[in-house]
Amino acid sequence: MNRDFGPTELVFLLAALRWTVALTLVAFLGGGLGGFAVAMMRVSRLRAVRAAATVYIALLQGTPLLMQLFLAFYGLAVLTGVRLDAWPAVALAFTLYAAAFLGDIWRGTIEAIPLAQWEAATALALPRWHILRRVILPQAARIAIPPTVGFLVQLIKNTSVAAIVGFVELTRAGQLMVNVTYQPMIVYPLVATLYFAICWPISFAAGQLETRLNMKGNRA
């Protein structure tokens, strides 16, 4: 007998939403650390270090996230000789993915700081690390906020791809509920609504932040 979509099924979806949020947070924090390292490598004085970061970004931005997930999943299985459950592979893949995108976003904001700032700080004989930490990064951080918040929305939406490798988050939970209720016309629009309820306010905030930043920039 089929179950109808009711409160129990809704609770199941909401419970799975926790895993969407958890995966997003792990990837955003891990990717934030990794992305900072990638951005620092991209502005390094050593050509080889810059090149390594460039290649890393190009590889992760030039291949489908789903392929990265499969490679992490089967790659870890090859390395450890056992098939792990999806969580470590998915967390690893999303962290590496976020590191590439955040690294590229932050490289852009660092490069957006006028060269004269570097020159002035160099003329003051500040050591390079000081120039970065005290002069460049504080200014870059300010303009980095809107695109970083924007990427967070991208990340939340993309965690849905983890459903394809069997990780039970919101989208996968939706599939499971469709399998028991046969009511895709209720379940999938509801799943979309839940994503929208999380993503839209963040998108809106990113837009507001950007507008405010532009207005400040014009006044200065």
Partner: peptide, 23 residues
């Protein structure tokens, strides 16, 4: 535009393929 930008592509595909037949 807002719906497309704030929901996952995968869920959009599920709606087109699995939910639209109901209509």
């Amino acid at each position: 535009i807002e719906v497309i930008r704030n929901t996952p592509l995968l869920v959009q595909l599920f709606i087109v393929y699995f939910s639209l037949p109901a209509l």
